[in-house]
Nucleic acid binder design. Structure first.
Lengths: 355, 355
DNA sequence: TCACTCTATCGAATCGATTCGACGACCGCT
DNA sequence: AGCGGTCGTCGAATCGATTCGATAGAGTGA
């Protein structure tokens, strides 16, 4: 009853009068061990209160820790206020959990847009999921590559040593924009997600645009312009309803003949904010202005409105990522995946008002 | 350039012509090592592309993995649709991240209300946070205790071998209920959070009530009854807006003289649903019915309404948990903590209608 | 010059398991 | 009786670092 030190496999083996290698065989389950021996070892373990092999020691030999990192660019409270991030991770854990693999959160904070090297360096990792991967060099990424930790980059750039999982950002936005032009819209404004995580908000200048950090943000903007040519972009500081509302007020609170007849928000959350702004300004949707989003997120508080949006299979994307991670850990190199999106026309887009 | 095997500390030490123990000293930083030696080792490491000591091997000796588990009772998509859970974890990571400790998600799934033993057994853990801790025996809990993993239980029962962090659920609800009785309300109904995670919803029978699994749910119900005596409880199947709306419809869609004049929801999310139900039924808030919540959650989509609610310091609760974890890992036994709550009167409660 | 104190470095034990080759016992077949 | 083949168990090496006591050499003071 020395609670000083917990029993180890060796203790258990000694008590059961077998070699520790035999005891190990018992706990790894699969091997051929005489039933009587197995019982003896199990009994000894039970008597000693042995909870099974130490995961750390096991990891050292087997080169597996059962831990997969999730790099998040912001603090959790921001990242997880976005249902898309949450559903992505939900899909990932759905695949990984049954395999006994856990997801380790590696969030950034107000200043740093990702975990510090000190955070990364001390933690065992079989693989890492970059939840939103930027276009630019990242010291954390470099560190992980040096360590030989395989990486899945979600919505990031397609690099050789990264496995890519993404969606058809461009095609989805093109389809959405065609829907708007078919309805007669020509004056369209875009409410953009943050181009970089530096708290900037407002109209996007060409210089700013050249420094866009996130691939999906760029693609979604280009999708609109592929159909309509250059359009004004209004950048938000975060993917949040308030930010969308702020952008919506800035874009819509102008004389009717300058006002965009349609606003394309780069996320449903932002679109919800734009809807609020329209309501606050006394504009009817879609009679006075059409509003569209992106993601197809479940926003249970949004009804009775049904948002026109580009639906991406968020949870499925997470599952795909989970499978990619599984492959990587098993030593296989999975293919890059680009998932389909589709347009969902709701009640927030309609014919352009005659001016 | 053999990418077969990455360099180890021994490789680096050999290259720098020092003992591996000396090289170890260099990477642990603190010890006294001659500057020339240090540089030589660092140079060797750089040449070999050595990314620093293997975290797993380090963990084995130091008995620290840098991983803290977060036990979540449901799948992530549900748990993280609740801003309270998210803010709690946000506070935890805020404290833990700078210490190089990561948070490992251990969610349950549709069937199991927590991680399986297989999930737990293979993962290294320095400590565990039970995000919502139930009252009843839990095999996972038992396993962790046997392994000697220290546990912080949030809003759970106060047990000897668990560190408790919670809030004044009872006092907050009493204060809220007094506010309602002061306004003349006597017919009050409660929309309860799930008593157990089994998908039940509807009026709560005494038998059901005797089997409540979550402490905070029980306390919040008792707080109302401490002031008013027995009140009808309507149980929801999840903490979600739709569930609140469903409950609201059931409670409010009755003749005016049977209708409760005030509805106390056990969370702000549920309260938002009740507000929707009232709106759908053409009832004015607070003229026809008062609605109150609990948590003080930030629901950016709720304005212009300001919900009357009991505010708990959610992020601070997370920080307290983070500090408790830090203490436990360092071998100290932190005290239990009960955090203050306060009533925030908004625009959703008013004088009881004269009947 | 000698004894003594630091300092920088080294060797070896250790953390707790896994894994593979070896070995003895026992079985059945010719 | 002899031989090959299984089956169950064991020993020892190994994973990659940390850590402590030992030691050689430089520096100090009498």
């Amino acid at each position: 009853m020395t609670d000083r030190s917990r029993p180890t496999l060796a203790t258990v083996a000694a008590r059961a009068e077998v070699a520790s290698s035999t005891a190990s065989l018992v706990f790894s389950g699969s091997a051929r061990v005489a039933p009587s021996t197995r019982e003896r070892v199990l009994a000894a373990a039970a008597e000693l209160g042995y909870a099974g092999p130490d995961p750390v020691a096991r990891s050292l030999r087997s080169r597996r820790s059962g831990v997969v990192g999730a790099v998040i660019g912001e603090r959790l409270a921001y990242a997880f206020s976005d249902p898309v991030s949450v559903q992505l991770l939900d899909g990932v854990t759905e695949v990984l959990s049954p395999l006994g693999v856990g997801l380790l959160l590696l969030p950034g904070d107000a200043d740093r847009h990702g975990p510090t090297l000190a955070q990364l360096a001390h933690v065992p990792l079989d693989a890492v999921v970059y939840a939103t991967c930027g276009l630019e060099d990242d010291p954390a990424l470099e560190h992980l590559q040096r360590r030989g930790v395989p990486i899945v980059a979600v919505d990031g750039p397609r690099l050789d040593d990264l496995v890519f999982v993404g969606i058809q950002d461009r095609r989805g936005t093109v389809e959405l924009t065609r829907h708007l032009t078919d309805l007669g819209h020509r004056r369209v404004a875009v409410v953009a997600l943050p181009l970089r995580l530096d708290g900037t908000r407002g109209p996007v200048t060409p210089e700013r645009r050249a420094r866009v950090h996130f691939l999906d943000v760029r693609e979604r903007a280009l999708g609109v312009e592929e159909v309509l040519g250059p359009v004004p972009l209004w950048e938000t500081a975060a993917n949040a309803v308030e930010e969308g509302e702020r952008a919506g007020r800035a874009l819509l609170d102008v004389p009717a003949d300058e006002r965009p007849t349609a606003v394309v928000a780069q996320s449903d959350i932002l679109a919800a904010g734009v809807l609020r702004a329209a309501e606050a300004l006394g504009l009817r949707v879609p009679e006075d202005v059409s509003v569209a989003g992106f993601d197809g997120a479940e926003l249970p508080w949004l009804p009775p409105v049904r948002l026109t949006t580009v639906v991406q299979p968020t949870t499925e994307k997470g599952r795909v990522v989970g499978r990619a991670v599984t492959d990587l850990v098993a030593g296989r190199r999975p293919d890059d995946v680009v998932l389909d999106v589709h347009l969902s026309v709701g009640t927030t887009t309609g014919p352009a008002p005659r001016s």
